[in-house]
């Protein structure tokens, strides 16, 4: 499958950035190969999934306000079918990490992510969630949400304007649309090794909570 076959309404795929990464992702998925019938079913399922991404706003700071602005009248997240903001992680498909993640919040971010049902996606919105942003040198800030959970799309900005957020969500839709429900699963990227290895002892930190016992 070619990346140009992934259609998004009103935005031709040539105008999208970062087509190479998506193409590499498709190739990786295609490595196992599937037959045509399943492919069609996959397309239908992906169409459903991509257009019904119910977000969970993990909003910690400024970016959360821009997320709210995006959901309000001027920008209207509802046009993408995404206005059904679920506050319960169990019912959400997409976690929008909007804001700084600090040491104290880290375990909770991970826990909320673990509570979500598959298929689940994560969008890192804003500089803080991508890399720690303005607070990258601070003692209490985790430099990027991807140290704790896998991130599918990075939306830069501080905070990104709602159009930027929409562009990021469209990118995510493209990613959802190339995945396979039958045959092989979506590729879950490994967690950043920093978090899973205790820097003191060199051992892997075992996450213990009531959800994975």
């Amino acid at each position: 499958m070619d990346v140009n076959k992934v259609k998004i309404k009103a935005l031709p795929s040539d105008d999208f950035k970062d087509n190479e990464t998506l193409q590499a992702y498709i190739d990786e998925l295609n490595a196992t190969g599937t037959n045509v019938v399943v492919g069609k079913l996959d397309q239908m399922i992906n169409w459903g999934r991509a257009n019904s991404l119910w977000p969970l706003a993990f909003a910690t700071s400024c970016c959360g306000i821009e997320f709210m602005a995006a959901a309000a009248a001027h920008y209207d997240l509802a046009r993408f079918g995404m206005e059904v903001v679920r506050n319960s992680p169990r019912q959400a498909d997409l976690m929008v990490v909007a804001g700084t993640i600090v040491h104290k919040m880290g375990p909770l971010l991970r826990r909320v992510y673990d509570q979500m049902a598959e298929p689940k996606y994560v969008v890192a919105m804003g500089a803080c969630a991508i890399s720690g942003g303005p607070f990258v040198n601070s003692y209490h800030v985790i430099n990027g949400a991807d140290k704790i959970i896998p991130v599918d799309v990075y939306i830069p900005g501080c905070p990104p304007r709602p159009e930027s957020l929409f562009y990021g969500l469209l990118q995510l839709q493209r990613k959802v649309k190339v995945e396979k429900f039958f045959g092989n699963k979506r590729i879950v990227r490994p967690y950043n090794p920093d978090t899973l290895i205790n820097p003191k002892t060199g051992e892997t930190v075992k996450v213990e909570n009531e959800f994975n016992k």
Binding site: M44, I45, G48, R49, S52, R79, E83, D93
Partner: peptide, 25 residues
Amino acid sequence: RLGPNRLGKYGWIQSVADLIKILIK
């Protein structure tokens, strides 16, 4: 606001997408 309007004309198949999604969630 405008509400769902990107799936089909005026977004009329929006809830079908939701249905498909929720069935295999």
